[in-house]
Design a protein around this nucleic acid. Sequence first.
RNA 1: GGGGAGAUACCAAAGUGGCCAACUGGGGCAGACUGUAACUCUGCUGGCGUACGCCUUCGUAGGUUCGAAUCCUGCUCUCCCCA
Length: 376
Amino acid sequence: MQFELKHTAVGTKARAGFITTDHGTVETPIFMPVGTAGSVKGIHKRDLKDDIKAQIILGNTYHLYLRPGLSIIEQAGGLHKFNGWDGPILTDSGGYQVFSLGDIRKLSEEGAKFQSHIDGSAHLFTPEKVMDIQRVIGADIIMAFDECTPGDAEYDYARKSMEMTQRWLDRCINQFEKTSPMYGYSQSLFPIVQGAVYPDLRETAARNVLQYNSDGYAIGGLSVGESEKDMYAMIEVVNEILPEDKPRYLMGVGTPVNILEGIERGIDMFDCVMPTRNGRNGMLFTQKGIMNMRNKKWADDFSLVDIDGTSFVDHHYSRAFLRHLVISGEMLGAQIASQHNLAFYLWLVGEARKQILANTFTSWKEEMVQQLSVRL
RNA sequence: GGGGAGAUACCAAAGUGGCCAACUGGGGCAGACUGUAACUCUGCUGGCGUACGCCUUCGUAGGUUCGAAUCCUGCUCUCCCCA
C-alpha cells in the first residue's frame, strides 16, 4: 500500500491524497462504508460502486470469524472473492467489540475472551490470532488488535488500557511479520492510537506507534462517549505527532460535521455505521440538514427525496413515499435511506477534497457545518 | 320466532365496588443511534397546566352506595346457536 500526499490546503491541516492498494486507488479524504458481516447492509455492490461511489469498504474480523467462519472465507479465496467487492477492503480487528460487547467478554493480558453474540460459545482473541484471522479474510488494510477504551475512562484505567494496547500492538506486528498474505496481493497493518481523553496518554501512544514505520496509522477510542470538544482536541494532539506522509484513519467517526472537523485537523480516512444504521432507522443526512423521515411533516411532501443529492434514489422517489416505506417497515425504505446517506457521505468527502485542492476548504467547511446539523 | 353472549380510550383487549384516567399489544406522535449483539431502543399517547393538581370519560337513561367501568332496572345496538 502506498500513500501519496497530493496537497495540503493553504493555512490548514486538511489534506488530499491517494492511497494505492493492490485492489485500486482511493482518493482521500475518504469515507469508508461499513460492511460488518461482509455486506454494506441493504446495498448492492453495483450501487456501492456506481451510485454511491464508494472506493473502499470495511469488514469486521469478529463477525466474519464467527460467521461464515474462516474455512468458508478461505475456500472462497478471501473476502473480495466471497462478497464480490473487488475494490480495497479494510477489516477492523474486533477491538471495537472489546468495547461494545463489554458484558460478554473478559479482558486479560493474553487477549479478549468473547462469548459469541450468536450462540454464546466462547472464543479467545489474542493479537496473534487476530492477525492470523485477518490474513485469512485478506483485506488490503488490516487493523491492530486493541482495547477501545471507553470515553469516560478514568486516567489510571485509560493509561493501563493504552499500555496494554501498545503491548498488543507489538505482538500484532511480530505476528504480521511472521506471516504472509494468502491470496497474492499485499496487506498493510495499521496501529491504533488509544489514550482516551488524556493528552499526555495520546501523545505517548502516538509516539509509540511511530517506531513501526507502518503504512498508515489510526486513531481509536474516540466517539465512544467523550465530548466532541475532547474528541477534536485528541485528534489535534495525535496528528501533531503522526507523520505527514502516511494516511491517518479516525476510527468510527462520525456525523457529517465530525468528518469535516476531522478533515480540517488532518484526518484522511473515516468510517461509521451512522449513514446506514441511522438510515435504517429513518434518518437522512443532507446538505441542508437532517431529516427524520418518520416525522409527520413529510407525509404529504411529494417533492424529491433530496434535490441536491447525487444518488439515483434522491431523484426517483418522493419524500412522502419514502416516509410511507419507513413508517410501514418496508425493506425498501431502509435501502433508499441507506443508499442516500452513503451517497451523501461520499459526496461530502469528495467535495471536501475538491475544496482542499482549490485552497477553499476552510470557508466552505464553515458554511457546511452551519447547515449540516439543522433539523429539517 | 327461541336461546345465549357482549357493548371499555384511534383499533384490539384486560379490568367485575375504592389501589382506575383505566393493564397489555397494535397504531399514532416525538427522541436516540458514531471502528454494527441494532430494519433497534426510549418516551408520550382523554382535556387543561411546567408541576402538586383540576375537569370530563368505560353503549344510553335512571337507580343503589360514603364511593360505580364494576351492582340493579329500562332502552339502543352487535355477535353466536337453534328454527
